[in-house]
Amino acid sequence: MIRTVQTKDITENIKEMCIEANHFLSRDMCAVIRNAEKKEESPLGKQILEQLEENLSIASEEMIPICQDTGMAVVFLEIGQDVHLEGASLEDAVNEGVRRGYTGGFLRKSVVGDPLIRENTRDNTPAVIHTRIVPGEQVKITVAPKGFGSENMSRVFMLKPAEGIEGVKNAILTAVRDAGPNACPPMVVGVGIGGTFEKCALMAKEALTRETGAHSEIPYVKELEEEMLEKINGLGIGPGGLGGTTTALAVHINTYPTHIAGLPVAVNICCHVNRHVVRVL
């Protein structure tokens, strides 16, 4: 059965999702922040986490974006292979949704049209769009506006296979340690291991959209996530980078087969405003 989906519906949903993501942090993120505030050992760290919770309340109640960096819009689309899209081109439909969300929703326009000429596009377009064709007749949209304080501290490491799991651990700790206060800790750490240069980076980004604190289904990867969260929190960076026991709220790791000669590792760091909204059409 072929199901028809209008691209104007994709536009409308993306518009709403951009506004929602920037004012209402998802329940999973709110829960880990609350939990961290209870456990934080540093008095200043605890005070900062309390401020972050207060900030979330003000944002949602008064419709002020959680953070002034309302991000570059990253959009993941999983399109069922039995879907027929009707209307404007998919890319135009997504960008139109971003345009309407950012201009109508009082969100900051943070995108420059050329990386070196650097003129602001004034509507936060274009989005960064990742599309995958999957079985079925649904369209799953994930909108994840990404702030650049933390994006700038993200890294790709092309390790040698001989470096193994210790090399991976070291890469993650190096990225987090170097990010320190710049990435607005407490962070969520998305990691991609394997694949190719670009595949590991994409996996790391996707890992950030996972329900916060949910673990990999692969037993050794789950263990690695738990171990790395403990080690990262042992770095002492703390909330705001001002010392404490909460440096990361979660570590999410995705893996993929890779080449006999390689061990790519990407670490995509997100601040505590790890925005992700999902809708299925």
């Binding site: 050992e41 540093s42 200043l44 210790e166 651990k169 070291n170 700790l173 320190g180 206060p181 080690k231 990262i232 042992g234 770095l235 002492g236 960076i237 703390g238 980078g241 001002l242 010392g243 404490g244 026991t245």
Partner: peptide
């Protein structure tokens, strides 16, 4: 940033 971190640092340099 340098002094406050030391107080809570438990993970050694080598991870």
């Amino acid at each position: 940033y340098e002094t406050a971190i030391k107080e809570y640092c438990r993970t050694e340099e080598n991870g």
